[in-house]
Every structure is written in structure tokens, then in C-alpha cells.
């Protein structure tokens, strides 16, 4: 019984922690791209990377205030969306997928390369406190919770984690509200029509390219926000955190919750991290495998999850089966 509680406690802790916030944001961005507009962006991790680095470089290297860093992160992801979108938005879905994943990898290679090291810290990345106050200092100073642990029973958070969690989920709620407003509007209707058949939308006088670009920027900025959240909650970033599989985790989160639904990415992220953390804890406790293989086991588990979801419940938890039957 205790064992079960430990496992569940780990799951719940992870499900409401900052990592789940990061993936909820990244997946909401993908939902705008893939769920609503049909853009198969496989480089969401690239947006997370530029968001995180935009913040970190501005605050830690150039010693600007945190809010400037946040704006820089948003601008960086907007810029990436523009650069990426101009050539690729005219391409077919699968070409777009390949070029976005390639672009994200280019970014990672470049950010970890030696010429970029003065700005990016090379392969070691940027810990919060390189120079000046660092990107977590203002953040921590804003924390209204005095030092200590908060919570009840097995569910306790340190004051920093509590702060990040509360701010993070508030941002998620705000973003959900905005996406909800957008998607119930005629603007959202045009996006959905592009997802269904962009030629049809074009024939009705919609500037498909402009809408796709707007969607790419919106979802990309959400990815950038996810990256910033990641940087702040870890107080450090390194380029090799931004591997392609992060994008695929975000897809798993999205599809699990239900693509093209408002709450899908949020519910998906909660569930995903609950599963990941409890499976991991269960593996550790049951001692069936050497500790070194638990990491890859967890990742392989995500892969199998993605296959099964797509094959058997592509509409996810919240999606509409009726709509899904029509897909393809």
C-alpha cells in the first residue's frame, strides 16, 4: 500500500510540477499548429530553444532585466517562425515536417558550436548566474512564499517549485483562454478550413499563407514560452536538452489529451507526466532492471504509447471520435 502511494505520489508531483507546465505550453503551441491548422511542425523544440536562449542570453550575458529577457524570448521565437515559415509554409505537410526538424537540429548544432560559445556557452549552456544577477534572481525575488516546504502529506513542494508551479499554471490558464477565444472566432474557423483543405480556403478568398504564418508564430511563441519556463524552472539550460525527441513528447502529450481540443494539451501533459513519473518510480521500486536502463525504458515507453494512441485512440482523451473517423 505504501508502495502504491509512493508511486502515485511521484506521479502526482510530476503531473503538477513545472515540467508539466513546460509541456502543456509546448503542446498548446503544437495544437495551434497541428491540431487546428494542420501544420506538421516537428521542430517545436527549436522554438523552445530560441525562447530559452533568448531569455538566458539577454539576462545572464547582456545583464538586462528579466522582463526584457522575456520579450527577447518572445521576439526570438517570432523571428524563428518568420524565417522558417517564409520558405516552408508553401510546402506539403510532410516536407514541412522534415524541414522543421532539420531547422531545430541546425539551431542545436549552431548553439553548441565553438563560434557561438561566447553567447551560448557552447555545449555547457548557460547556467542562470553567469554574469550579473542571472535569469532566476528577479524571479526568485518576486517569490512571495517564504523559504520552506508547502503542502500536505506526501504532496509537498519547496517554495521555489511552488512559485514556479503557481505562475506556470496561471500562464497556462491564460493561454488556454486566449486559444479558446481565437478558435471559436471566424479566425479560428479559417485555420480549421486550412487544416481540412487549403485549396478550398483559397478558393473562398482566404489568404492561406498569411493565416498559416500567424498560426506558426502564435504556436511558436507558445513554444518559446515553454522554453523560457524550462530555463527558469531549471535555472540552467544546455543545447543538448533540446533534442528532437522533446517535440515528439509534446506530440504525445497533445495526442493523448486530444488534438484540436481546448483542454487536450493540458490534460495530456498532466496525464503524461503522471504516467512517466509513476512508471519510473515503479521500475525503481520493483528493481527489475539496472538503474541505468530506466531512462531509456521510459523513453521507449513513450514511443510505444504514441504508437498505440495513434493506432487506437487518435482522438485522444477529449477528442471527438466522430471527427476522427473522417481523418485521412
Amino acid at each position: 500500500m505504501d508502495v502504491l502511494i509512493t508511486i502515485l505520489a511521484d506521479g502526482v508531483n510530476s503531473a503538477i510540477g513545472p515540467t508539466a507546465v513546460v509541456f502543456a505550453l509546448a503542446a498548446i503551441g503544437l495544437n495551434v499548429h497541428y491540431g487546428y491548422t494542420g501544420l506538421l511542425n516537428f521542430g517545436q523544440v527549436g522554438f523552445m530553444l530560441v525562447g530559452a536562449y533568448g531569455l538566458a542570453i539577454t539576462v545572464s550575458i547582456w545583464e538586462q532585466p528579466l522582463w526584457v529577457g522575456v520579450i527577447a524570448g518572445i521576439l526570438a521565437s517570432t523571428l524563428l517562425a518568420l524565417l522558417l515559415g517564409l520558405p516552408t509554409l508553401r510546402l506539403r505537410a510532410d516536407y514541412l515536417a522534415i524541414s522543421t526538424i532539420a531547422a531545430a537540429e541546425i539551431l542545436r548544432f549552431v548553439f553548441r558550436s565553438s563560434p557561438a560559445t561566447p553567447f551560448t556557452g557552447g555545449p555547457f549552456g548557460i547556467p542562470s548566474q553567469v554574469g550579473g544577477s542571472g535569469y532566476t534572481q528577479t524571479w526568485n525575488a518576486l517569490n512571495p512564499f517564504p523559504q520552506g516546504r508547502y503542502g500536505i502529506g506526501w504532496l509537498t513542494f519547496s517554495h521555489t517549485r511552488l512559485w514556479a508551479t503557481i505562475v506556470g499554471w496561471s500562464i497556462v490558464l491564460l493561454v488556454v483562454l486566449v486559444v479558446w477565444l481565437l478558435m471559436r472566432s471566424p479566425w479560428g474557423r479559417v485555420l480549421k478550413s486550412i487544416r481540412e483543405d487549403e485549396d478550398a480556403a483559397r478558393a473562398l478568398g482566404k489568404n492561406v499563407f498569411a493565416y498559416k504564418m500567424q498560426a506558426l508564430i502564435l504556436g511558436g511563441v507558445l513554444g518559446g514560452m515553454a522554453g523560457m519556463m524550462l530555463a527558469i524552472s531549471q535555472a540552467a539550460i544546455a543545447p543538448d536538452q533540446f533534442l528532437p525527441q522533446l517535440t515528439f513528447f509534446a506530440y504525445t502529450v497533445l495526442i493523448m489529451g486530444g488534438a484540436a481540443t481546448i483542454w487536450g494539451p493540458v490534460v495530456g501533459s498532466l496525464l503524461f507526466w503522471f504516467l512517466i513519473a509513476s512508471v519510473e518510480r515503479a521500475l525503481i521500486i520493483s528493481d527489475v532492471m539496472p538503474s541505468g536502463t530506466i531512462g531509456p525504458t521510459r523513453l521507449a515507453f513513450v514511443g510505444i504509447l504514441l504508437v498505440l494512441l495513434m493506432a487506437f485512440r487518435p482522438q485522444g482523451l477529449l477528442g471527438n471520435k466522430r471527427e476522427m473517423v473522417l481523418d485521412g
Binding site: 479566425w187 480549421k192 478550413s193 487544416r195 481540412e196 483543405d197 485549396d199 473562398l204 484540436a260
Partner: peptide, 27 residues
Amino acid sequence: KALTRLSVMENMKLGATGQRGERILAS
């Protein structure tokens, strides 16, 4: 090219031009 996952009514409303709500901020 029926838009498969939009309702008939949404299909129809999409056709209207000059919609104020089709601009991102106004929406």
C-alpha cells in the same frame, strides 16, 4: 472539397467575405 471536420453551417459561414472576426486581434 467539403471541409470534412467542419459542420455544414461552418462550411457555409467560411464563404462570407470581409469578416471582421477573421483578423487575429479582432477575433
